[in-house]
């Protein structure tokens, strides 16, 4: 049994315990704090799976701002749960059925870190790991990129003289842009999020903006003075 597996099992056991504790806790303040611990444990788990960016987001959003907003909400609601809970059997069965379907779905997933997973054998993946800039063919950006590659290759030829045997395999394309992150930035996640699919991220930002506008329109000035301290 490898060390990483032991760490993962311990973390996941703690995640399970905190999840049950969050649901079972009658004290809402304690539940908010325990759910923060849950996020922190999940962040540790993501880190052990090498998903550092996900862990970072989980720690900042799940353990950070969500807990703060939950505790801010407790000022409104009070910290004791008043409704007596009973087990709602149809809901429980539905949850277990959906959970079972999800677990059944994961059986088809490739094993963690499997080098022969379909995502790793797709032709685009080979290009992406070399961090080649993928521009729309024939666009002005693609032309500029090709021109810069040619210029860099010429420079390499002058520097190395007769050493041309690698250039046919495209290795110079990679080396030429080493000083400039091979055309992409070192953090591949950021590279994907804001360059490869920058359009998606723009609309995600718009969604967050819309959430803010919704809060302003619905809640601002609801206690009397509509202009109290606000622009809108």
């Amino acid at each position: 049994m490898s060390g990483i597996l032991i760490i993962d099992l311990v973390l996941l056991a703690l995640v399970l315990i905190t999840a049950v504790a969050t649901v079972e806790s009658r004290n809402l303040f304690a539940a908010a704090v325990i759910s923060s611990i849950y996020s922190l444990l999940m962040a540790c788990f993501w880190t052990s799976m090498d998903a550092v960016d996900v862990a970072y987001t989980e720690a900042a959003v799940g353990a950070g701002i969500s807990t703060i907003l939950l505790i801010g909400t407790l000022v409104l609601t009070g910290t004791r749960e008043t409704v007596r809970r009973i087990v709602h059997w149809p809901a429980l069965l539905l949850c277990m059925a959906v959970g079972g379907v999800l677990i059944y779905g994961t059986l088809d997933m490739p094993a963690f870190g499997d080098p022969h997973a379909p995502a790793h054998e797709h032709p685009l993946y080979a290009g992406y790991t070399k961090q080649d800039i993928r521009k729309a063919p024939g666009s002005k950006g693609a032309e500029a990129y090709e021109a810069s590659l040619t210029a860099a290759r010429d420079g390499e030829h002058e520097a190395h003289g007769e050493d041309t045997e690698h250039s046919e395999h495209g290795e110079h394309n990679g080396n030429a842009h080493q000083d400039y992150f091979h055309g992409h930035v070192p953090n591949q996640v950021t590279s994907i999020i804001v360059a490869y699919r920058g359009f998606d991220t723009m609309f995600e930002t718009c969604v967050i903006f819309c959430a803010g506008v919704g809060m302003i329109v619905l809640l601002r000035g609801r206690r009397g003075n509509p202009m109290k301290g606000g622009l809108l």
């Binding site: 521009k135 666009s139 950006g141 723009m202």
Partner: peptide, 30 residues
Amino acid sequence: GYAFLDYTAIIPSNPGGAEPWGMVSVEWGV
């Protein structure tokens, strides 16, 4: 004259160097 969010437009002579600048600008917006 480039595509939407094609960061090459920032430094056309060096697309690889322009990419980080575009990302930094966009990240500040987010």
